Amino acid sequence: MTTFKLIINGKTLKGEITIEAVDAAEKEKIFKQYANDNGIDGEWTYDDATKTFTVTE
């Protein structure tokens, strides 16, 4: 398992979430669903070196 981080830079929601997953593709799906469930629609980036997804509205 690898630890992945999501950084949220939303208009109404900001924060960080850290979760373990098998791979980045699995985690991306979970993070995007979390963002969608919380009304966050923005630009996504991924840094493989730090295993960090960022979504910015």
Rank of each mutant, 00 (worst) to 15 (best):
D37E: 12
E20R: 11
D41T: 13
A49I: 09
V22Q: 10
V22W: 13
I40R: 01
I40Q: 01
F4T: 06
F31R: 01
L13P: 03
E57F: 15
V22M: 08
W44S: 00
L6F: 14
I8T: 00
T52D: 01
D48S: 07
D37L: 10
F4W: 04
A35E: 01
G15H: 13
E16P: 07
A21T: 11
E26D: 14
T54V: 05
T54A: 02
I7C: 13
K11N: 09
I17M: 04
Q33T: 04
I40E: 02
G42C: 13
N36V: 12
V22K: 10
G10M: 13
G39K: 04
N38H: 13
D48Y: 06
E16Y: 13
D47T: 01
I8P: 00
G15I: 15
K51N: 09
D41C: 14
T2Q: 08
T3Y: 11
E28H: 08
T45K: 04
G15Q: 14
A21H: 09
E20W: 14
I19W: 14
T45C: 08
I30M: 06
Q33H: 05
N36Y: 14
I30L: 09
D47S: 02
L6Y: 11
E16L: 11
D23H: 06
A21E: 05
T54H: 09
I19M: 06
E43L: 10
T18I: 12
D41K: 13
A21S: 07
L6V: 14
I17K: 00
E57C: 15
A49C: 09
V55W: 12
M1L: 11
K11M: 11
V55M: 06
T3D: 07
V55G: 01
I8K: 00
E16H: 08
I19F: 15
F31M: 11
E57D: 09
I17T: 03
E16W: 13
I7Q: 02
F4K: 05
A21N: 11
T50C: 07
E28M: 14
A25N: 08
D48T: 04
G39I: 04
K11Q: 07
K27F: 15
I30V: 06
K51A: 04
T54N: 06
E57V: 14
I40H: 02
K27L: 15
D41A: 11
I17L: 08
E16R: 07
K14W: 14
D41F: 15
D37F: 05
